[in-house]
Design a protein around this nucleic acid. Structure first.
Length: 136
DNA sequence: GCCAACGTTGGC
DNA sequence: GCCAACGTTGGC
């Protein structure tokens, strides 16, 4: 199983909306690096849900329920989306400043590639974040 | 193929 | 609202 992180501006699509919808198609990704990660996603991979701009924190866990398929929101060929389903809201959200403050997380794409909207998370990083979130 | 100009993302 | 970082575009 692989781990990922996706970003969303809560004013556009928040964790609460995903929790209410149960699942959603993760469309609108128009970045080549992000697309590579979308294509690599497998069913049941775990996905951290991050709120950018507002909150600036990891708020929940989602999972991949459908692997990549053509993004119908794009007029151009080639862009893809996946389907994500809500798994659970974190007991305690993990803020960007907490991630920045932990040396063990200093290699995270969230910090190093701050503009990448779909990014991989290492298993060690996942475990650290889970413990910060009070999930262990 | 280089690089300047420009647009977008996202933290603060 | 500002600005740094970075991706994309387009002229040469």
């Amino acid at each position: 199983m692989n781990y990922w992180l996706v970003k969303s501006e809560p004013s556009k699509y928040s964790w609460d909306e995903l929790a209410k919808d149960k699942k959603t198609n993760w469309d609108g990704v128009r970045n080549y690096a992000a697309r590579i990660h979308l294509r690599a996603m497998q069913i049941n991979d775990r996905v951290l849900f991050y709120h950018s701009n507002e909150g600036v924190e990891i708020v929940g866990i989602a999972k991949v329920v459908r692997t990549s398929y053509p993004d119908t929101s794009s007029e151009q060929e080639g862009w893809v989306m996946v389907d994500l389903a809500a798994v659970k809201k974190l007991k305690k959200p993990v803020t960007l400043s907490q991630v920045k403050a932990d040396k063990r997380l200093s290699e995270m794409a969230l910090i190093k590639l701050s503009r990448l909207s779909v990014q991989p998370v290492r298993e060690e990083e996942w475990e650290i974040i889970m413990s910060m979130a009070g999930e262990k």
